[in-house]
Design a protein around this nucleic acid. Sequence first.
DNA 1: TTCCATACCTAGCATAACTAGGTAATGACG
DNA 2: CGTCATTACCTAGTTATGCTAGGTATGGAA
Lengths: 108, 108
Amino acid sequence: MLKGHLDAIVLAALEAGPAHGYAIIETIKRNSTNTFDLPEGTVYPALHRLEAAGLLSSAWMTPPGGRRRRMYSLTKAGSAALADRRKAWGRFSQAVDALLGGGRAWPA
Amino acid sequence: MLKGHLDAIVLAALEAGPAHGYAIIETIKRNSTNTFDLPEGTVYPALHRLEAAGLLSSAWMTPPGGRRRRMYSLTKAGSAALADRRKAWGRFSQAVDALLGGGRAWPA
DNA sequence: TTCCATACCTAGCATAACTAGGTAATGACG
DNA sequence: CGTCATTACCTAGTTATGCTAGGTATGGAA
């Protein structure tokens, strides 16, 4: 359960460069050390939503001797949205930390 | 927008002792420095949900010369649930931090 | 007496994320 | 060759969450 922060995560995954859906899922899984093993039914619709919102653009690619893939890239609006989402996440997580008290003394 | 962490927040607000709905809203607002100014339509149903789940218990109280209030307390199961939710939040926020990269170097 | 703050409530909506299916192509394995 | 796992895409439908937008009622201040 990603509770509204999926968009930020997907946008962030594309910050390093274009990628296709399946790879995005793998990246998120790896970079979260398996915490977020997202079902395709979560990610694909999110990509469509973000594209419809103008935050991503996509193009079909067929690598030599491979299956076709839909490659997504961040648009300008997408980069801006990512910056906003990051700020929002900062405020949000800070507030939750404050409310949950003990949490997040952050030795690591 | 609380994205699934409302329960943890409400439970945490009751950790210090019993309180009624309206006061819980105020506490959350204050302790989050106004980040979470939750509408009643968010909190009351959540309290009912948590009580139905056995995590809270409630009793009507009428303070001398005051209006009746429904006081909520953490049950044993509620305390346990809170501990779980805290752990879940820790894992969750850590993972999001990792994915969003730059975020949360946390000097403050 | 009028208004604000306190204090409770709920029906109904929007949306997010997930479940659970489906389609194909590729390569490995026997 | 047939079968299976993996890659890679898709979507209809369910669920639950949190919110909007209303409503009731009391007490105190102006």
